[in-house]
Simulated assay, not measured.
Amino acid sequence: MPVDTSPADASEPPVIAVVGPTGSGKSELAVELALELDGEVINADSMQFYRGMDIGTAKISVPDRRGVPHHLLDVLQVTEEASVSDYQRQARAVVADIHGRGKRAILVGGSGLYIRAALDVLDFPGTDPGIRARLETELQESGSATLLERLRTIDPVSAGRLGDTRRMVRALEVFELTGRPFSSFMPTREYFRPAVQIGLEVDREMLRERLAQRVHGMVASGLLSEVERLDAAGLRHGRTAPRALGYAQFLRVLDGETDIAQAADATIVATRQFSRRQLTWFRADPRISWLGWQDPALVSKAARLCR
């Protein structure tokens, strides 16, 4: 499906985005808004793209969708790599389709870069499998310190920001391909088409407890069995899916390196850390309107912002 790159019509309603940390109730609010505004939901959680990754990603169930169409859920096999540039193309095409049918498009998710890829003016450099393979081989042979030092000389901004070797390799690949530092491709806060972003303001201590309870609920619901089934389908061989919260920890249970209780504790810690990073990311965007996650009037206030 081609991407609609034309400017939005002045009469077109803004794209709605519901954002915030994991466990804050984004999916539920998105469904309520869709029912209130005659909308359809577009997933912007990078791990919910994967078929079969349901329990560990807290993917909204079909009954809980309450008849609201949900797009870009279950679109990848666990062996496939999630791509922000592919998502940008797909999400914008879905937005154009939804608006073309006179309905409201509602993005929902906590993957900040994916939200911005859909909403903001943002170009993505291409990829070159040969360059990437060479850099990954060099990483294995020489170690991350050598590549990090090279990145510092050509792109000190990215060198200071990137927290894992995968992103480091990507930054070096982009420089070889384009001659531009990876950091120069970072998005500006300029909407591609009109948008309204609603953030869920949380009580951090309550969220910490909710996240712990959610992980224990996932374990009780069969997370280990889900990971075992996905492992048989090639989970370990994917580039993106095996790093998902919970899945990485419970693969170690299958390997006999830890037990279920330890894996659950490790998942809780990792999930809490991730929620803090999400809050930092979204708090940096002044365009987001924040509403209390437990406000009894949350749906009506959010709908008012969207009208």
Score class of each variant (00 low, 15 high):
1 M>L: 12
5 T>S: 15
5 T>F: 14
6 S>N: 14
26 K>G: 09
39 G>P: 05
44 A>G: 03
60 I>F: 01
66 R>G: 07
69 P>C: 05
69 P>G: 03
69 P>A: 00
73 L>E: 07
74 D>Y: 07
75 V>K: 02
75 V>G: 01
77 Q>C: 06
81 E>I: 11
82 A>Q: 09
83 S>C: 11
84 V>K: 05
85 S>H: 11
86 D>G: 11
88 Q>M: 14
89 R>F: 08
103 K>D: 04
109 G>A: 01
110 G>H: 01
115 I>N: 09
126 G>Y: 07
128 D>R: 14
134 R>D: 15
142 S>P: 02
149 E>D: 10
153 T>L: 11
155 D>A: 12
155 D>P: 12
156 P>R: 10
157 V>I: 13
161 R>E: 15
165 T>N: 15
169 V>E: 07
170 R>Y: 10
171 A>D: 02
177 L>R: 15
180 R>F: 13
182 F>P: 04
186 M>A: 15
198 I>F: 02
198 I>G: 08
198 I>M: 06
205 E>C: 06
207 L>G: 05
208 R>F: 03
209 E>H: 14
211 L>G: 06
219 V>A: 14
239 R>K: 11
240 T>S: 12
244 A>Q: 03
253 V>S: 02
261 A>K: 13
263 A>S: 04
264 A>L: 13
265 D>K: 13
265 D>F: 01
269 V>F: 10
275 S>V: 04
278 Q>Y: 03
279 L>P: 04
283 R>V: 02
287 R>L: 10
297 A>N: 03
303 A>C: 03
304 R>N: 14
306 C>R: 02
